[in-house]
Simulated scan of single mutants.
Amino acid sequence: MEGCRLTPAQRRIAHSMLRSPDDIPFLSSVAVAELAGVSQPSVTRFALAIGFDGYPALRRHLREIVTAGPELGPEPSPEQRPAAAPANVYQRLVQDEIDNLRDLSTALTDPGPVVRAARLLAASHPLPVLGLRAAAAQAVDFAHVARTAHADVRLLDEGGTALSNRIDDAVRAGASALLCFAVPRHPREVVGALVHARGAGLTVVTVTDSSFAPVAPHTDLLLPVGSANRFGTACAPVLLGRLLVRAARHGGTGAAEPSRRRRSPE
């Protein structure tokens, strides 16, 4: 795919293929579309865009790669052998979420992006937190925890014409940054809200499922928590949000002040 110019939908397909390389060669174009959260014709156009005659030709090519397999090496020890596959769909979903958390842990080997994000968010008074539809629960959890460390957290979990007004209100009150949670399937309204927020002068930090997500071009600091599931990951964004609060407490400007006030007698 190197050198190919892909649309946002095609980048989502590519990301899904990279996340599930062993499964994709045996899925229909409809199943791939479901996995990536795009339409079936988008899968066909993706195959054409990267040089194949259609999706069947791409799938045959991927099957040849998978069935060829790597060269056989020494027999692995019991500790090196992969764990048995989950017995049912529920166990597989749990295992997928465990894998998402492992990926997040690996990404945090470099904590720099989280520390930078925490400082931006801690310095914003007030702090608007955006999460619509499926992402609303993640935004609510962050706002609940963040209020123990930040004096003015403003939850934006409802769309409509009032959303832009509430962003403008936060800017007039002194906000300098906005935190957004965005998960599949991404509401178009979220992109519009981020465009409006940046136009109003806010620095946008976004927790989302992929570097190829529709919100990525409209974000100043992206914190991806990847997922092969078309509905995204449930636990990783919530945990990352709590890590942002923890980082703000330890290194964010002014983050500890509200906590001291909470301990004082009323």
Rank of each mutant, 00 (worst) to 15 (best):
M1V: 13
M1D: 12
E2V: 13
E2R: 13
L6Q: 12
L6E: 12
T7W: 05
P8F: 00
R12W: 00
R19L: 15
R19H: 10
P21N: 03
D22Y: 00
V30H: 10
A31I: 04
V38C: 08
V43T: 02
A47C: 11
A47T: 10
A47F: 05
L48D: 12
A49Q: 14
G51V: 10
F52I: 02
P56M: 10
A57R: 14
L62M: 15
I65N: 07
P70G: 09
G73H: 07
P74C: 07
P78G: 07
Q80H: 11
R81T: 13
R81G: 05
P82R: 03
A84K: 13
P86W: 05
V89S: 09
D96M: 06
L101Q: 07
T106V: 12
T106M: 08
D110H: 10
D110Y: 01
P111C: 06
P113Y: 01
V115L: 15
V115A: 14
R116L: 12
R116W: 04
L120F: 11
L121A: 01
A122L: 06
A122I: 00
H125L: 11
H125T: 15
H125I: 08
P126H: 05
V129P: 04
G131Y: 03
A136S: 14
A137Q: 08
A139D: 08
F142K: 06
T148E: 12
H150D: 01
D157C: 10
E158I: 09
G160M: 04
L163M: 04
S164G: 10
N165Q: 14
N165H: 14
R166W: 08
A173K: 05
A173F: 03
G174C: 10
A175R: 00
A177V: 08
P184E: 04
P187D: 04
P187K: 12
V190I: 11
V195S: 03
H196S: 05
A197M: 09
V204P: 04
D209R: 08
D209S: 13
F212K: 09
F212A: 14
P214V: 04
S227A: 01
T233A: 15
C235Y: 12
L240M: 12
R246L: 08
A248N: 01
H250I: 08
H250W: 10
G251C: 03
T253W: 00
